[in-house]
């Protein structure tokens, strides 16, 4: 997308998000917070899928672990929310490094299966651990007082804290993708042996990418835990891992913020059609099949593609778009 257009869209979106708590009858702020968490989750996931070319099928482990760690810190240890969230992020990043170190010993399809199995291991740990409340989940987690001054008990205060954290997280994703480090990740995605022969420590880059992606996914999980005052098994279940893949695929994995659009759509699907129960699962499955079969570019990728093909676009603009295609929206 042309830079000016995407900039102005971003500013507009931010303005709308800032205004949400003043019009709760139009957009329910708690729902918007949830959507933002998933938007960050999907963009963080895409650090691996879109930008490093690694398919992880276990990201629910990071999302859910962060939620449980934060919940434990807030409810059992009585720590303030900033410490709890930080602990969740660090826990997830650490787990990401462990997953990465194990999973990159194999490639492609095997790597996906390994992450799925490791995530299932994490799922069983939380299912059996004492403090997690098993099927009931960890309930009534206190939101606490941020930095000792700002009570998060009100949704109004919490909303802006979450907005700031998510914006910070997304900015970080953007920075990582558009940094020399991100360039190396793309080199690995395009041709791993070449990157290796150029002297890059490919394994280390992959593990760091895993860890960063996991840590940012963890931030999303921790925030969701604070918002809903709940850490539950659904956060670590493989359905969640599948869901984040779908969000990324649907939004477009060739862009930085495309996955966020997928996250909005899938969250809205769950939110507005919740009453239909298992039918939602069927629809999600059908969307999945549709995306894989005929919509592999995703929404943003498709838009970019159409913009490039339009005859009125000048040659230089097309080249410009092509250059930006992988790097930015």
């Amino acid at each position: 997308m042309p830079l000016a257009l995407s900039r102005s869209l971003l500013v507009l979106l931010f303005a709308v998000l800032v205004a949400v708590p003043f019009m709760p009858h139009i957009l329910y702020p708690v729902f918007v917070m949830k959507v933002m968490c998933f938007a960050l989750f999907a963009c963080a996931y895409n650090l691996l899928l879109g930008h490093t070319g690694i398919v992880s099928f276990g990201h629910a482990a990071f999302f859910g672990t962060a939620a449980y760690v934060t919940g434990y810190a807030l409810r059992e240890l009585g720590l303030p929310p900033e410490v709890g969230i930080l602990a969740g992020v660090l826990g997830a990043a650490l787990l990401g490094a462990v997953f990465g170190a194990l999973a990159i010993r194999r490639q492609g399809i095997y790597l996906a299966m390994i992450t799925l199995a490791l995530a299932q291991l994490v799922y069983f740990v939380f299912l059996q651990a004492e403090f997690t409340g098993a099927e009931d989940g960890m309930q009534q987690i206190p939101r606490g007082v941020l930095f000792g001054v700002l009570s998060l008990r009100s949704d109004f205060n919490l909303y802006y804290v979450v907005l700031a954290c998510i914006a910070g997280g997304l900015w970080l994703v953007h920075r990582i993708v558009n940094s020399p480090f991100g360039e190396v990740l793309r080199a690995i995605r395009e041709h791993e042996p070449r990157a290796r022969s150029l002297g890059y420590a490919v394994d280390r880059y992959k593990i760091i990418a895993f860890s960063l992606s996991a840590g940012l996914s963890g931030l999303a999980g921790s925030l969701k835990c604070v918002v809903f005052q709940l850490a539950a098994l659904t956060d670590v279940h493989w359905h969640m891992s599948g869901e984040v893949i779908l969000m990324t695929l649907l939004g477009g994995m060739s862009s930085v913020f495309g996955p966020a659009i997928g996250a909005v759509l899938i969250s809205a699907l769950h939110h507005y059609f919740d009453a239909l129960g298992a039918w939602v699962t069927i629809v999600v499955g059908l969307v999945f099949i549709f995306c894989v079969l005929v919509f592999r570019r995703g929404i943003v990728g498709q838009l970019n593609h159409m913009l490039m093909q339009r005859p009125s676009v000048t040659r230089s603009a097309a080249a410009n778009i092509k250059e930006k295609h992988h790097a930015a929206v």
Binding site: V55, I109, G242, I245, T281, I282, G285, L286, F288, I289
Partner: peptide
């Protein structure tokens, strides 16, 4: 893998 995962959800 992704396509068959979609089928899992549908079934």
């Amino acid at each position: 893998l992704l396509l068959t995962f979609g089928l899992v959800l549908v079934l």
